[in-house]
């Protein structure tokens, strides 16, 4: 009987692992849990921007994207500390920054959950032993831990998928125009969202003292990351990835001076490389963008290839 029970649980676990709701628990971190490639020649850290804008597929180099969304520089650093044994000597470490990299995002227990199966306990913020146990149990056998939730959410998801397939098949009968992505709206939404997230009413207004101290703290983290890389024989390069003009044009000079320049100056003053692709002509085409901040697959592969060429790595 217990063998049958194990088999049933195993089958359900396999189904659950294919679902989006389960994958969303880990924020894309499964790629890191499964990492088994040593001698990496180039890696990138980063948050959503890093996750979407770097793609090493088809490029003749051993690269890996450690970016997870959302993720702060502190977490980028913790990932570097845990995974640098996978890098070859002279590995290039790409550290992407974007407009709000200098500010601190409030601790979120849900976002922190994904780190438990992949980081050493000493490098997990607000480490909680019970969360760690839950994370490992959930990763190993979700159906054993939350069977009711697994059944409900998995069933819902498969039903939704089935219905969308039916709908798509019906729609083939009707000729429909493709709805163009609205990058302007995407940019507007991003700016609105950031303003709310970081309590900024006006981007060109003078920076608050609390934001100034956050930027100082993030600057220190960034400098530590750079020194950490050099001390271990890696080559760090700080990069601002491309963004769509609809977003770039909404970021005033005053904001760049107060929120981005301090980070950039810290990098340059320490003698490290910083490359700004935010307004690079090669990445202007709408066809490269999934949103105003993130490149699509085509754009990410193209950008990654160009960046590695600019760095003489390929």
């Amino acid at each position: 009987m217990s063998k049958i029970k194990s088999k049933i649980i195993s089958v359900f676990n396999k189904l659950v692992r294919k679902t989006s709701w389960y994958k969303s628990l880990w924020g894309g971190a499964e790629k890191i849990y499964k990492l088994n490639t040593f001698g990496l020649q180039v890696v990138n850290t980063g948050s959503g921007s890093g996750m979407h804008n770097f793609n090493y597929e088809g490029i003749p180099i051993k690269g890996f994207n450690f970016a997870l969304g959302p993720q702060s520089l502190v977490h980028d650093f913790n990932i570097l500390k845990n995974y640098f044994s996978y890098f070859q000597k002279n590995c290039t470490v790409l550290i992407p920054i974007c407009p709000f990299s200098g500010l601190v995002v409030k601790y979120n227990k849900e976002h922190n959950f994904k780190y438990y199966p992949m980081l050493h306990p000493a490098t997990i913020s607000n480490f909680d032993e019970s969360e760690r146990t839950k994370a490992y149990q959930l990763y190993r056998s979700p159906f054993s831990v939350i069977p009711k939730e697994c059944v409900i959410k998995t069933t819902r998801e498969f039903m939704r998928k089935f219905l969308s397939i039916v709908k798509r098949n019906l729609e083939k009968i009707v000729i429909r125009k493709t709805v163009p992505k609205n990058l302007q709206k995407s940019a507007d939404d991003l700016i609105k969202g950031w303003k709310a997230q970081f309590s900024i009413t006006e981007l060109s207004a003078p920076i608050s003292s609390s934001h100034m101290s956050e930027i100082k703290s993030r600057k220190e983290t960034l400098c530590e990351m750079l020194d950490f890389c050099t001390e271990r024989g890696f080559k760090p390069v700080v990069v601002m990835p491309p963004m769509h003009s609809s977003l770039y044009n909404q970021i005033p000079e005053a904001f760049k001076l107060q929120y981005i320049k301090p980070l950039v100056d810290a990098v340059i003053n320490k003698g490290y490389a910083f490359i700004d692709y935010s307004r690079d002509n090669r990445f202007m085409s709408d066809s490269y963008y999934a949103s105003a901040l993130f490149l699509n697959d085509l754009g990410a592969k193209y950008f990654t290839k160009q960046l590695l060429t600019d760095l003489n790595l390929i």
Binding site: N78, F84, Y86, Q88, H120, A122
Partner: peptide, 12 residues
């Protein structure tokens, strides 16, 4: 350069 116990994971 194979590591069966990646050192940085044990001592970040």
């Amino acid at each position: 350069d194979y590591q069966y116990l990646p050192e940085s994971k044990g001592c970040p």
